[in-house]
């Protein structure tokens, strides 16, 4: 189970993270989940072997302040989230503008919960399974 979770708002995020950094924590990663109407972002930090988390609810369309001014290590995961979830992250040290993992022809924000992407072949009509289906693992 996830313990040691602290709820936070986007405007207080950078200040809170700077405090956490001052306590000697290590930046671990950010997890983003699409909840349908909002994105759920969890920032993970390692405090001498103990994990602590900051939880952020970000409505669709809102921008996210970047942590890369505090922790340069955050820049890679923030670019990934910008690509895969379509969240605009502002003030990143290196901004790939949505071309970090994806190309021009890639689907937009593929990890959001939208219908039609990565349909499981088993729920399709039998005729459609003959074509190369995206649901196959490899």
């Amino acid at each position: 189970m996830l313990t040691n979770v602290q709820e936070i708002t986007p405007d207080r995020l950078v200040g809170e993270v700077a405090l956490i950094k001052g306590q000697g924590c290590r930046f671990v990663t950010v997890t983003c989940t699409d909840l349908g109407e909002a994105h759920d972002l969890i920032y993970h930090f390692d405090d001498q072997g103990e994990l602590r988390h900051l939880r952020l609810k970000l409505p669709h369309g809102a921008t996210l302040p970047s942590l890369s001014g505090v922790w340069f290590a955050a820049v890679i995961i923030e670019n990934e989230i910008q690509d895969l979830f379509g969240i605009t992250v502002t003030g990143m040290a290196i901004d790939y503008k949505g071309r970090f993992l994806l190309a021009e022809s890639s689907p937009k924000a593929p990890f959001n919960k939208l219908g039609g992407i990565a349909v499981d072949v088993r729920v399709r009509p039998p005729a459609a399974t003959e074509a190369a289906a995206p649901g196959g693992a490899h």
Binding site: F100, L102, A103, P110, F111, A118, D120, G135
Partner: peptide, 16 residues
Amino acid sequence: AIGYCHRGLEKIAEKK
């Protein structure tokens, strides 16, 4: 610059 072998594995994991 990465993204040459992005497979979207985390998304497939939601479907299986």
